[in-house]
Design a protein around this nucleic acid. Sequence first.
DNA 1: ACTTACCGTTAGTGAAAACTTACCAATAGT
DNA 2: ACTATTGGTAAGTTTTCACTAACGGTAAGT
Lengths: 105, 105
Amino acid sequence: MNNSESAFNALGDPTRRMIFEKLRDRPLAVVHIAEGLQVSRPAVSQHLKVLREAKLISINQQGTKNIYQINQEGILAMRNYLNKFWDTALAAFKLAAEQTEKENE
Amino acid sequence: MNNSESAFNALGDPTRRMIFEKLRDRPLAVVHIAEGLQVSRPAVSQHLKVLREAKLISINQQGTKNIYQINQEGILAMRNYLNKFWDTALAAFKLAAEQTEKENE
DNA sequence: ACTTACCGTTAGTGAAAACTTACCAATAGT
DNA sequence: ACTATTGGTAAGTTTTCACTAACGGTAAGT
């Protein structure tokens, strides 16, 4: 599974999107990420693992605290995927239009 | 659920990503989408429904054939989400850096 | 040393969702 | 008319995965 694939998988879950958006505004320790969320702390830990493997977030270990923060790499992977996807789709569309035009001459 | 949410949900599934990528190159009827895929045609139909509701694809009905094609709307929703997300994260980061700087004066 | 705070992992459970089978409706072609 | 093609839906099964409870491990503070 490449970067963008694991990133799409990770953001496919609503709870993980909430965590992801919490970290958008500031880096947070796991306890604080779990606050306000309706799942247990271990569940949050598991989600963090998935997000980390997708390179959407990264750890900054400080003593016993694990401070999580946004990682640009995963975001870039998704953006590149979508940009390239659309470019390819558009090119295919234009090519098909030209083909049709020729056939009608 | 807004647009980008349902889009992320939809692309969270690997089979749906495959379908989505199949349609990138050309519009296809359901039968042809199912070809090569390791799931039954009804399963494909169900996936198409999810992708359609996320506005990632759209139908072009031609007689008894349902031709599916890429829909830019869902893609744009995701791109906008990611762009805005990153902008916000960057702004928050800069603000935090300035705060820290002031404290160290 | 002892206690407290923080957090990852494992095992087991429950719910969501992906899948298949069966069925039916609509159009196209003969 | 009838036959074939196309494809959506419903019911039921299977599988996946998100979740909790319990445990252990590490670092900080006293």
